[in-house]
Design a protein around this nucleic acid. Structure first.
Length: 576
RNA sequence: CGGGGCGUAGCGCAGUUUGGCAGCGCACCAGCUUCGGGAGCUGGGGGUCGCCGGUUCGAAUCCGGCCGCCCCGACCA
């Protein structure tokens, strides 16, 4: 491709809206443009990158035995009402009416549609296993889109759905996807880690996320360097050994603490370590029941863990008036003793066996000190309901856990029968019995991969694309188009590259060398071939990799072979 | 949804405090010079100053309302 015939609107200055490298460079390199908050257009160069990612994803999905389909983005409300998610999904689901006033939504994910499709087509266990996937636009009306195409409202996703006759078979389907995902991310040039993850609104029991290491990531990865344990902080467990307190339980005592509410305030007012306070939080479960959670003052309640411990779908903080009804005191003075209404009490496991805690007295402006679980109040359940913190130890091997940030590029779930049961999607098994499909679902953020790669592969001059997803393989720079020798060599090389099937972007613009180098570095094409005046006189050109400072000066006739060699080397590095 | 910031040419910004010709740099067009790390000079084109309303002889500037965008948090397959 000749640059004079191409559209590559690079920007010298950093756009005001962009904060992180991927957003800045994708805009500056002329790859994306914003249409509205969280909604982006892809320009020719950016779209070439996305298409290459799509091709890799498609090759690996096909290789894993999945079958490509194409499902509608506009989906009728009835399907979502049937699965129960029409009322659960919240504002992320963009809803609207057609001309007949019928409710529709834009698909944020496609479980409903795929289950509807498969239940009408598949009747027998002989047709299983089945794994259907698509690469398509998703729309999620995010509360706060951010970071360019990392968290966009409209984005391209690969989503796959497996249907099996048994849990054993699901395990096989899941493992195939796990391996396909590893191959995909390796080929895209990403340094990633697979972590145990929360399932969120998609549901199911087991899930893994594929995380790309990046300081700008929104997720926190908790991992162990010794044994390889890795989990999203939302899910991460940590080692805890119950050690009965040496202290003798003292007598509870009510103390006046006027307007002292937060952990910090109580801690400094009473001169007590935060770890001795019992943070008392009232929640309402999705089943409509109220629960009081007790966690040490220096720890944070993890709602996902808490919901799982109770076996409920979701938890919501109780409203101030509900707290008042249950505790008889306002927020800040709630505690487990003398609750006005008896509710279930769940304490974090780190509380068990310890004595002499401080908590709210369930009376405004009063706290109570020296309370001990089991004696002064009953705990209905001890469970792991808090986040892992710096300093906690690995649940597997006891090594100190490490914390790092990451970008989620893939997520795989064992769904089980959540959707097939709700939507009555069944098949006949070997015994002629009707059974719901055992499902899995598997997502990859295709456009997010492009951004994640830039986050990981860039320097102060721009992007450094892995060759597998680079918009072009070779950047051919003619330093001066007015110089006959330079132009002739460059034109001949261009023809040779094209004939050899090399994807080359030939900078044949009438610009100065420095200008072209800056653009080439910004856009990040992995191999650069430079035809300059001085070496051209000796019939030589320069070959350089974007990621390196080293320059090779070669006779013109050797350049094609050398470029083919480098290209092959770069692809080899990224083979799974 | 809570808090903060911003909105002036395609991009980056000044001008708003104290009302009085709508500006600068980059980019774009033409010409000349230049030519290995975002060139110089000369000339030129491009604006509902986010929108609506109000105050005023006069509003980018003051007042009211609305909209959009970004950041932090909450939320989030």
């Amino acid at each position: 491709m000749r640059l004079t015939r191409y559209h590559m609107p690079t920007l010298k200055e950093k756009p005001a809206e962009a904060e992180i490298p991927s957003h800045q460079y994708l805009l500056r390199a002329g790859m994306i443009r914003k249409l509205a908050s969280g909604i982006y257009s892809f320009l020719p160069l950016g779209w070439r990158v996305v298409k290459k990612i799509i091709n890799i994803v498609r090759e690996e999905m096909d290789r894993a035995g999945a079958l490509e389909v194409f499902l509608p983005i506009v989906q009728p409300a009835e399907l979502w009402q049937e699965s129960g998610r029409w009322n659960v999904f919240g504002k992320e689901l963009l809803r609207f009416k057609d001309r007949h006033q019928r409710d529709f939504c834009l698909g944020p994910t496609h479980e409903e549609v795929i289950v509807d499709l498969v239940r009408g087509e598949v009747r027998s266990y002989k047709q299983l296993p089945l794994n259907l996937y698509q690469i398509h636009t998703k729309f999620r009306d995010e509360a706060r889109p951010r970071f360019g195409i990392i968290r966009a409202r409209e984005f391209i996703m690969k989503d796959a759905y497996s249907f099996d006759k048994s849990w054993e078979d699901l395990e096989v389907s899941y493992q195939k996807m796990y391996e396909a995902y590893c191959r995909i991310f390796k080929r895209c040039g990403l340094d990633f880690v697979v972590v145990e993850a929360e399932t969120g609104a998609i549901g199911g029991d087991v899930s893994h996320e594929f995380m790309v290491w990046a300081d700008t990531g929104e997720d926190v990865i908790v991992f162990c360097e010794k044994c390889g344990y890795a989990a999203n902080r939302e899910r991460a467990s940590f080692a805890f050994e119950k050690s009965p307190s040496e202290e003798a339980p003292k007598t509870p005592e009510k103390v006046h603490t006027p307007n002292v509410r937060t952990i910090e305030e109580v801690s400094s007012f009473l001169g007590v370590e935060p770890s001795r306070l019992l943070k008392s939080l009232v929640y309402r479960t999705s089943a409509g029941e109220f629960v009081l959670f007790l966690v040490p003052g220096d720890r944070e309640l993890n709602e996902a863990k808490a919901a799982r411990a109770l076996g409920v779908e979701a938890l919501e903080m109780a409203l101030p008036h509900e707290v008042l009804e249950i505790a008889g005191a306002s927020v800040g003075f709630v505690g487990p003793c003398n609750l006005k209404k008896r509710v279930k009490i769940v304490a974090d496991r780190t509380v068990e066996g310890r004595v002499n805690f401080v908590s709210g007295a369930n009376e405004d402006d009063y706290h109570v000190v020296n309370i001990t679980p089991g004696r002064d109040f009953e705990v209905d359940l001890y469970a792991d309901v808090v986040f892992a913190e710096e300093g906690d130890r690995c649940p597997n091997c006891g090594e100190l856990l490490r914390f790092s940030r990451g970008i989620e590029v893939g997520h795989i779930f064992k769904l089980g029968t959540k959707y097939s049961s709700a939507m009555n999607a069944t098949f006949l098994n070997e015994d002629g019995k009707e059974k719901p499909f055992i499902m899995g679902c598997y997502g990859i953020g295709v456009t997010r991969i492009a951004a994640a790669v830039v986050e990981q592969k860039h320097d102060e001059n721009g992007i450094i694309w892995p060759i597998t997803i680079a918009p072009f393989e070779v950047s051919l720079v003619a330093t001066n188009m007015k110089n006959e020798t330079v132009r002739e060599i460059a034109e001949n090389l261009y023809e040779a590259f094209v004939e050899s099937g090399i994807e080359v972007l030939y900078d044949d613009r009438d610009e100065r060398a420095g200008f072209k180098f800056k653009d080439a570095d910004l856009v990040g094409i992995p191999i650069r071939v430079t035809v300059g005046e001085r070496s051209a006189k000796q019939n030589k050109v320069e070959v350089k990799l974007r990621r390196s400072q080293d320059v090779e000066v070669l006779p013109v006739e050797k350049v094609l072979d050398r470029v083919m060699e480098l290209r092959q080397m770069l692809y080899r590095e990224l083979e799974p």
